[in-house]
């Protein structure tokens, strides 16, 4: 028995040691080539070539590319990257491999067109992606919604947006709010209301966690913008009435007969600067807010770009 037991021992130790060593090296290799899976997108960015190379397993490859797209965006977004060059090709490849992967179009609408660091800043490619999606899935009203959304939010083309929403609303099973949106676009109704409606619709109609979170962030930012706008108007009124600026936000609230000190969506009271500006306490918590930020405020530092 003895020689066998000795070999068993040696083999077990070797197995564990080499498992540990290979895992460690794997970690090192990953550090050596961050985002390495995306290298091939650099060399093979043609969706047609990738479709050919996947030898008919398009569905599986689409899932893999879709995960890569999400992973790519999530990783860079986390580090507030200043560019997302590969997002558009990744989504284009994904949707070419599986043209019915609706979530990929939604993702594109939400993250392809906004300016960095919130998105790739490529609204035109987002539009092309949506148009391709509509061509492939002409009966899906979600895609009309997404396209109209891009026109409205990033391209500010209200006429086009109204047109698209109108088209979408005529599809069978289309959500009724498409009609309302179309009408609102046409009337140029109050911007906050429309925006709020759009983001709420996005929030309710998606399954994707990242898209949902993005919508919430936008809704929170909308409330901040709206609050700050109202409070700023109140400050102006206060100044006109009394000839001086309010001491602090509490004085302003009392003068306006508000039930308490106004707070932001996080429950933090707004603050009033000595020169009469209303600001949020923690600007970093509201990445999409356009108002209530300190002058010259920029979001967190950005990550060095790899691509």
């Amino acid at each position: 028995m003895k020689p066998r037991r000795k070999i068993t021992g040696i083999a077990s130790v070797t197995l564990l040691l080499s498992l540990a060593a290979s895992s460690f090296i794997l970690h090192r290799v990953d550090q050596l080539r961050p985002q390495a899976t995306l290298d091939e997108v650099l060399f093979l960015s043609s969706p047609t070539v990738i479709q050919r190379a996947s030898l008919g397993y398009d569905g599986l490859m689409a899932c893999i590319y879709w995960t890569r797209a999400v992973q790519y965006f999530g990783y860079r977004h986390h580090y507030h990257a200043a560019s997302y060059n590969l997002l558009a090709p990744l989504l284009e490849i994904t949707t070419r491999l599986d043209p019915h992967l609706i979530i990929a179009y939604e993702f594109g609408a939400s993250f392809l067109s906004p300016k960095p660091p919130q998105g790739a800043g490529e609204p035109q490619r987002a539009v092309e992606l949506m148009q391709y999606g509509i061509q492939q899935n002409p009966d899906n009203w979600h895609l009309y919604y997404d396209l109209g959304f891009v026109y409205y939010m990033d391209l500010r083309d209200y006429k086009k947006a109204a047109e698209i929403f109108q088209q979408g609303s005529q599809l069978p099973h289309a959500h009724p709010f498409l009609k309302i949106l179309a009408a609102q676009m046409a009337q140029h109704a109050g911007e906050y209301d429309t925006a709020r409606m759009l983001w709420s619709a996005t929030y309710e109609n998606t399954q994707d966690k990242q898209i949902k979170e993005n919508a919430i962030e936008h809704l929170r930012a909308l409330r901040v913008d709206e609050d700050v706008q109202h409070l700023q108007e109140a400050v102006t009124r206060f100044g006109e009435r009394t000839g001086h600026l309010p001491e602090n936000i509490a004085e302003l609230a009392a003068a306006e007969h508000l039930p308490g000190v106004p707070v932001d969506p996080d429950g933090q009271p707004y603050k009033l600067t000595p020169d009469g500006r209303v600001e949020v306490r923690v600007p970093d918590d509201f990445p999409f807010a356009t108002m209530g930020l300190p002058p010259g405020y920029t979001p967190k530092p950005t990550l060095r770009d790899y691509h």
Binding site: T8, S18, I25
Partner: peptide, 20 residues
């Protein structure tokens, strides 16, 4: 290094199984 360690690992597994 990775290839060597990984192959060593799989071979140790093979030896462990075959030995018994």
């Amino acid at each position: 290094l990775y290839a060597l360690f990984y192959a060593a690992m799989a071979l140790s597994g093979a030896v462990l199984i075959f030995e018994h």
